[in-house]
Simulated assay, not measured.
Amino acid sequence: MEKIKILIVEDEMIIGANIALQLTNLGYDVLGVIPRAEEVLPKIHQTLPDILLLDIYLKGDLDGIELAHIIQKEFNIPIIYLTANADEAHFNRAKTTNPYAFISKPFKKLDLQHAIELTILRIQEEKKSEINELETFVMSDSIFIRSHDKMIKVNINDILYIEAERNYCKIHCKDKEHLIVSTLKDLEEKLNVKNLMRIHRSFIINMHHIDEIATSHLVIAKKAIPVSSELKKQLLLHIQKV
Rank of each mutant, 00 (worst) to 15 (best):
K174H: 12
N157P: 05
S182C: 01
I199L: 03
E117A: 06
N132L: 07
T119Y: 00
D211K: 06
S142Y: 12
E212N: 15
K153Y: 03
D149S: 14
C173L: 08
V181G: 00
K150C: 05
K174N: 12
I171F: 09
R198N: 14
H209R: 04
M207F: 02
Y168C: 01
H148I: 07
D141V: 02
I205T: 08
I145S: 02
C169F: 03
H172F: 04
S142M: 10
R122L: 03
T119I: 09
K190M: 05
L187V: 07
I152T: 05
S147P: 00
E135T: 15
R166E: 10
E165D: 09
T183H: 03
N195M: 15
V138M: 14
I159E: 07
E165N: 06
F137P: 06
K170M: 08
F137A: 08
S142V: 09
K128D: 08
E130G: 04
L118Q: 04
E133D: 12
A115N: 13
L118K: 14
V154W: 11
N192G: 01
S202I: 11
E130P: 00
I156A: 07
K174V: 08
M139S: 10
I123R: 10
E135Y: 09
S182F: 00
D211S: 07
K127D: 12
N206T: 15
L196S: 02
E163W: 11
S129K: 08
V138D: 05
Q124H: 11
I116Q: 13
N132H: 15
T119N: 02
K128Y: 14
V181N: 07
E135K: 01
I116F: 08
F144C: 04
I213T: 10
S182E: 01
R122S: 02
I205P: 02
H200Y: 10
D175K: 14
R166K: 15
K194V: 04
L191Y: 02
E177C: 04
I204L: 06
I199F: 03
E165I: 10
K190H: 05
K150V: 13
N157F: 05
I145M: 13
C169G: 04
E135P: 00
L160R: 11
H114L: 03
T183W: 01
I123S: 07
E133F: 05
I159H: 01
K127I: 06
F137C: 11
K153C: 11
D175W: 11
H200D: 08
K194I: 03
F203G: 15
I199D: 15
L121S: 10
L196G: 00
I159W: 06
K128T: 05
E188R: 04
K194G: 00
E117Q: 11
K174W: 00
L191M: 10
F144I: 11
K150I: 11
K176A: 05
E188T: 13
T136D: 02
E130Y: 14
D149T: 06
